[in-house]
């Protein structure tokens, strides 16, 4: 995982696989960034994430809750067809829209 700050947008790039095992590492990393950085919008980019199961949905909803307490919107970008299907069946785009 790596991140970039573009103006007031925090861009997160997830890399590799996001399953239950990886979630133990990714969750605290995301939370540390949310706590330490100052930004008004967060975008999570999935272009380099080649595997995700439903654990990822739980991780995203957890971060969404933290961000919404601070009224910061979260957007999702570049999911693979597989990951997009999981997002759609979870209805995730209703609270964290897909962006281009």
């Amino acid at each position: 995982m790596f991140h970039k700050k573009v103006k007031d947008v925090l861009e997160i790039y997830l890399v590799g696989e996001l399953d239950e095992h990886a979630s133990h590492y990714i969750r605290p990393k995301l939370d540390a960034l949310i706590e330490s950085e100052s930004f008004s919008k967060m975008v999570i980019d999935f272009r380099e994430l080649f595997f995700m199961d439903s654990t990822g949905v739980g991780v995203l909803i957890g971060r969404y809750k933290k961000l919404s307490q601070r009224q910061i919107p979260l957007f999702l970008k570049n999911p693979s067809a597989q990951i997009d299907r999981i997002f759609r069946m979870s209805g995730l785009y209703k609270i964290m829209p897909l962006t281009v």
């Binding site: 969750r27 439903s54 654990t55 949905v57 739980g58 957890g62 299907r85 069946m89 979870s90």
Partner: peptide, 23 residues
């Protein structure tokens, strides 16, 4: 059932069986 989980405190999505059945 979609979104049903016994462990909401652990941020489980409750989507496991829904994903299995769909895929």
């Amino acid at each position: 059932e979609p979104f049903y989980t016994t462990k909401p405190e652990e941020e489980r999505s409750g989507m496991g069986f829904t994903v299995m059945e769909s895929f």
